[in-house]
Computed example of a mutant assay.
Amino acid sequence: MLELKPDCERCGKALPPDSTQALICSYECTFCLDCAKTPLQHRCPNCGGELVRRPARHKKEA
């Protein structure tokens, strides 16, 4: 199962499971949209991989 890290690894911005502002690489490094755009230019600084939108995990309604 995909690990949804709770915050941006660069700036610490909160990225809850339902966030549409989270991006990840293939190693699940997690960054917010602002950091991914500039200065990272959609490249992971850890592995060099592409940063893509992380799927949102919405709460189940009872």
Rank of each mutant, 00 (worst) to 15 (best):
P17N: 10
K5A: 15
E50W: 07
I24H: 02
C35M: 02
P6D: 10
H58C: 12
G12R: 03
L33I: 07
P39Q: 04
R53H: 14
A62F: 05
S19R: 05
K60I: 04
V52F: 13
C8N: 07
A36K: 00
K60Y: 07
K13I: 09
A14S: 10
L4N: 11
P16W: 02
Y27S: 09
C35R: 01
F31T: 00
L51A: 09
K60P: 08
D7M: 11
S26I: 13
A56N: 11
D7Y: 10
P17L: 13
R10K: 09
C11M: 08
L51K: 04
C25I: 07
S19M: 04
A22M: 00
I24V: 15
S26G: 14
R10H: 13
G48D: 07
L15C: 01
E28G: 06
C35I: 00
E28M: 10
E3G: 06
C32T: 02
F31M: 06
K37T: 07
R10V: 09
C8V: 00
P6I: 04
R54Q: 10
C25L: 09
C29Y: 08
C25S: 06
G48T: 05
G48Y: 03
C8Y: 03
Q41W: 03
P17F: 04
P6V: 08
P55Q: 15
D7F: 12
C8K: 00
L33S: 02
R43A: 10
E28S: 13
C44Q: 02
L2F: 09
D34Q: 06
Q21K: 07
P16Q: 07
